[in-house]
C-alpha cells in the first residue's frame, strides 16, 4: 500500500530516513529549478538543494502541518538560495561560462529543432536577464512562473504581504520584458 504524504511525514518525524528519501524524490527537481533560477550556477544549485533537504530532514520534527510539505521545503530552499546568492554573487565571466556549459546540454523537450534552438536562445537570454534582478524579485517570479504558487503562499515563504508579492512580480516581469525586448 502506498503511503500518503502525511504518513511519510509522520514516519520522517520518527527518524525514518527512507520516508524522507521518498519525499525528496518527489520534490527535488522542483526545488532544484527554483534554486537554479536564483543562484544561476548548476553546481551551486545542487549544493543548495542538498543542503535544503538535509535541513528539512534535520528539522522535520518542527513541521506542524500548517502548510503543505512543499511550501515548507520551498521556504527553506528559497531562504538558503537567497542567502547563498547574496554571499557569493558570481561575476559575469563565470555566468557566461555557465551559460555556454548549459547551452551545450542536450534539450530533452520538444522535437522541432527550430523551436528547440529558439527556446534555448530565449532561455539563455532570460536566465541572463533574471540574474540582474535582486534575489527577492527573482524568488518571487520563479515561484510564480515556474511553480505556480499563489501570492499567499509566496508571501508566506518570503515573509511579506500579498501586496508586496504583487508589486515585486509586476516589477520583475516589466524588467525582464525590457531586457528581452523583441526576443519575447
Amino acid at each position: 500500500m502506498e503511503l500518503t504524504e502525511r504518513d511519510l511525514i509522520r514516519n520522517c518525524q520518527k527518524g525514518d530516513a527512507a520516508a524522507f528519501e521518498e519525499l525528496a524524490a518527489k520534490y527535488y527537481r522542483r526545488v532544484l529549478m527554483v534554486i537554479l533560477g536564483i543562484v544561476h550556477h548548476r553546481e551551486d544549485a545542487m549544493e543548495v538543494a542538498q543542503e535544503t533537504f538535509y535541513k528539512g530532514f534535520r528539522n522535520i520534527k518542527s513541521f506542524q502541518g500548517g502548510s503543505s510539505f512543499y511550501t515548507w521545503i520551498y521556504r527553506i530552499a528559497v531562504n538558503l538560495a537567497i542567502d547563498f546568492q547574496r554571499r557569493q554573487k558570481r561575476g559575469a565571466a563565470d555566468l557566461r561560462e555557465n551559460m555556454d556549459e548549459v547551452a551545450a546540454e542536450p534539450d530533452s523537450l520538444g522535437t522541432d529543432p527550430y523551436r528547440e534552438l529558439r527556446d534555448r536562445e530565449l532561455g539563455d537570454k532570460l536566465l541572463a536577464a533574471i540574474d540582474e534582478l535582486t534575489a527577492d524579485h527573482k524568488a518571487v517570479i520563479l515561484m510564480r512562473a515556474v511553480e505556480g504558487l499563489s501570492y499567499k503562499e509566496i508571501g508566506r515563504i518570503m515573509g511579506c504581504s500579498e501586496g508586496t508579492v504583487m508589486s515585486r512580480l509586476h516589477y520583475a516581469r516589466k524588467k525582464l520584458q525590457e531586457k528581452l525586448g523583441p526576443d519575447l
Binding site: 527535488y28 527537481r29 532544484l32 529549478m33 527554483v34 537554479l36 533560477g37 548548476r42 545542487m46 548549459v102 546540454e105 542536450p106 534539450d107 530533452s108 523537450l109 527556446d119 534555448r120 530565449l122 532561455g123 539563455d124 532570460l126 536566465l127 533574471i130 517570479i141 520563479l142 510564480r144 512562473a145 515556474v146 516581469r173 525582464l176 520584458q177 528581452l180 519575447l184
Partner: peptide, 16 residues
C-alpha cells in the same frame, strides 16, 4: 515570458 522561464529551467534540471 512565464512559459519561457519555466521551459528554460525545466530543460536545465531534466537530466538531474
Amino acid at each position: 515570458l512565464d512559459a519561457a522561464l519555466k521551459r528554460a529551467l525545466e530543460a536545465r534540471v531534466s537530466d538531474a
